[in-house]
Design a protein around this nucleic acid. Structure first.
Lengths: 345, 345
DNA sequence: CCAAAAATTGCAACCGTTCCCAACCTCTGT
DNA sequence: ACAGAGGTTGGGAACGGTTGCAATTTTTGG
């Protein structure tokens, strides 16, 4: 059974002091005798004293905690963003409460409530693909708790957002496919509910337009990001009378899955179909052929978002700026025909 | 600035009730007039009322939170374990506080303190590779807070542990290499500080012994799990007068990195060197050649650990049992010579 | 040596909930 | 009409820590 935890009162009794003095000694308050402080600290150490954060939070009405809501830990993207968040948060003395929504709107709403109940000082959010209503997040605004969106942002709320230039990344990815001579470029897009899907789709479309490549509806497939579907849609694309000769996928997991399907159907990559992904997931350099992709500064996204949030929390600044980080097109074998290859070091 | 959060008192005033009654209505306590409860619930809803978990925890002296300490989110192993943990915890109404130690002992100690301060009801721990002293964890025991170790466990504490049969997995992996005719089997082992490294090493050694394969010291390299080192050690192994013809790696990231090095040096896999990993990381099926590996039921590890912990928390049962989950050897191309290949579906 | 300033320390209220106990109200049944 | 039962409600002490203010002690200087 859980035993009694030592409290300031235990220490106070032992030292025949009042809990106020002990508290002050412990928190480094100036008005306390150095000797007293010394003995308090020693005893605290000896008694395994740990400040009860609940009591502290209750007393100061702040938790020194920031909440993070992400869709899911299924690929390395979110875990790495969190790495960045924790790095910044830790340095500033904040804890991080991580919630996964599992791509479910209901779960996201529930998670928002949990964070609220935990009195978080701020929230970082990346939306699920199902989220169309934002009331559960507006509650934070109403209560004066800062929010920052990252990656999967929404246009309906005026708060800071951290994204990469999805439009531009998609544009350049598609342009790259065009420049290596592809004419029938398919796009496995994400659900329309996600702004990120729409932006990448637009980048793709505009690249086609710029180079006067006809836009073919049947080559654009929007799906729900569950990988099982990729096999279905990819098979369908390949069985078209005129299959695509290029493919731009909304993200790397999709592209990787697509590559597996393409290979299994006997098509050659990149000769028959050149493939480009988005994110530079660590697996993208491992597959065969290695995947050309639009790299995002993943960890940096986390750090930037965390910094923006802390800035709002501590300085109250809240210009709803959008911080757009740059992407980089990384060309690998999935779009390089043999002769152009130089040996990977 | 953070605004006032509505409290039971606000609701009580509005309804001209006492906070006790409101509290009871909100928590579903039976001694409350259904009508009263109804109106309380309605008003609470309207006022965005959220129970303050800090106050609740303080009052009941329990947080309904379990803490998790893991080394790092660098590969999918820990994120997936956490997926399992959250699943079980959520169902039981517990929150999960996730701490990353970044493989640093100091950070692990700090994390333990944070969890203590958060009054967690229990802790799940996977040690860093640096951890040799366990005082920071024994504190939990002293305070009667249950601990369960998983994956990276320690022998020094009598608490429940969830592991896979590392010895057996390593044994079978090595045996597999022997059975396909390899005689000079190298092992990239983890640091000796980790029990898991020692167990896998022993499995490897015993397999060699069983089949009367001489144990060659120079083929066994224990390293600190930072991937940059793999290139160094692997190059060294390959430059030996008699390079190895088989390689068993402590985990998949190591094996994947090793494969890249081996290929870049012009050796053929599996003809020149057959490679086996451990974990069945999702990338292991994507690389070329795909990696033979010892699969662990990753998510199940998280669920099992969480269940064991909750059982201790709620029923106080605390037999220090060791739950050993089974591994499965998954044979892929990194150990299959061409003629034996059947087409991957 | 004593008053006043400065350094310490203690008191008590407060943060938001829970929960025990007592008080109250409203029915019963006689 | 009234005692007791039972359902409801209010009061107030915790929970552990922070903090403004008052009280106490020590120091300092005239």
């Amino acid at each position: 059974m859980k035993k009694h935890q030592t409290t300031v009162i235990d220490i106070a009794k032992e030292l025949k002091l009042s809990k106020s003095t002990v508290s002050r000694a412990l928190t480094g308050h100036p008005h306390v005798n150095p000797q007293t402080r010394q003995s308090v600290l020693e005893l605290a150490q000896k008694m395994d004293y740990q400040r009860n954060v609940f009591a502290v939070s209750l007393a100061n009405n702040r938790s020194n905690t920031i909440g993070v809501i992400v869709p899911e830990f299924h690929f390395m993207f979110f875990p790495q963003v969190i790495l960045g968040i924790q790095e910044v948060a830790k340095e500033a003395g904040y804890h991080v409460l991580i919630m996964q929504s599992g791509e479910s709107y209901e779960a996201e709403v529930a998670n928002a409530k949990v964070l609220l109940a935990h009195q978080v000082d701020g929230v970082l959010v990346s939306l699920t693909k199902e989220t169309l209503n934002f009331d559960h997040l507006k509650v934070f605004q109403r209560k004066g708790i800062p929010i920052v969106f990252f990656n999967r942002v929404c246009d309906d709320m005026e708060v800071p957002k951290v994204v990469v230039d999805d439009y531009d990344g998609a544009f350049r990815a598609t342009e790259h496919l065009i420049k290596i001579g592809r004419k029938r470029i398919a796009h496995l897009a994400g659900p329309h509910s996600l702004l990120i899907s729409r932006k990448r789709l637009n980048g793709y479309l505009d690249a086609l337009r710029k180079y006067d490549i006809p836009i073919v509806e049947e080559l654009i497939i929007s799906y729900d990001l569950t990988l099982e579907k990729v096999a279905i849609y990819m098979s369908h694309l390949l069985s078209l009378p005129q299959p695509p000769d290029g493919l731009f996928c909304i993200n790397d997991p999709t592209a990787i899955k697509a590559i597996q399907v393409i290979k299994s159907k006997g098509f050659a990559i990149p000769q028959d179909i050149a493939v480009v992904g988005f994110s530079n997931d660590y697996a993208s350099d491992l597959i065969e052929p290695s995947l050309t992709t639009v790299a995002q500064p993943v960890r940096e996204i986390g750090k930037t978002a965390a910094r923006l949030l802390l800035d709002q929390i501590e300085n109250g600044s809240d210009k709803p700026l959008i911080r757009q980080l740059n992407t980089e097109l990384i060309i690998r074998r999935s779009t390089q025909v043999e002769e152009k290859l130089w040996l990977s070091k």
